[in-house]
Amino acid sequence: MTPMIKITDLSKSFTLHNQGSAVIPVMAGADLTVAAGECVGLTGQSGAGKSTLMRMVYGNYLTAGGSLIVGDLDVARALPREIIALRRHTLGYVSQFLRVVPRVPTLDVVADPLLSLGTPIAEARDRAAGLLKRLNIPERLWPLSPTTFSGGEQQRVNIARGFAHAYPVLLLDEPTASLDAVNREVVLGLIEEAKGRGAAILGIFHDEAARAQVCDRLVDVTGFTPPNPKTGVAA
């Protein structure tokens, strides 16, 4: 199987210049591979570095060492414009928070990733409408900005946006967290379909049943935590 994400000996630390230049190592020796059509779930306690690893894969956090290949690009060494192109075509990310230009209608928020790929507007809106309908966002809300929606509605808009384009690689951060049973099933269905078309998925799922249903493997990020410099024991 083709690896779509290949992480080798990845490390990360934060330097807090305004707090006595404290250096906080948060990751060392991370190794992980996700193949096309496979869904890998990250596990580990809160603060163990699941979200940090996802953000590094997305190019949102810099890496200190190691390599991080997504598709055919080493994100750890890529130029900003290479990462922008990667995000546009290859790498999708459903975060827990919806960040959009205020006052833009929900339909266009969801269609946006397709528009930036050059998809004609009617086709992009059709695809967006299909996803919003499937995720049970009432049609009367589509012309409104999602900034005023409830948490669960915003999350579904975010998921619709993340699935609008058929990204070969998808990062999912708690995609079912604040959803009711019906919408949770819809999202799990979208994930299964994405796997079926060959997408490589890396996700964080606190919902154990969801995790069991869609994940082919689990990786505990506790193993990537650097030893505590004071005690020599994994923190």
Partner: peptide, 21 residues
Amino acid sequence: QGLTDQVLDDPQHAYTQLLVS
């Protein structure tokens, strides 16, 4: 300098860290 969300979410320079915080 860098990718916008990277500079804002993982600022490296002391001044950027101060600006963002």
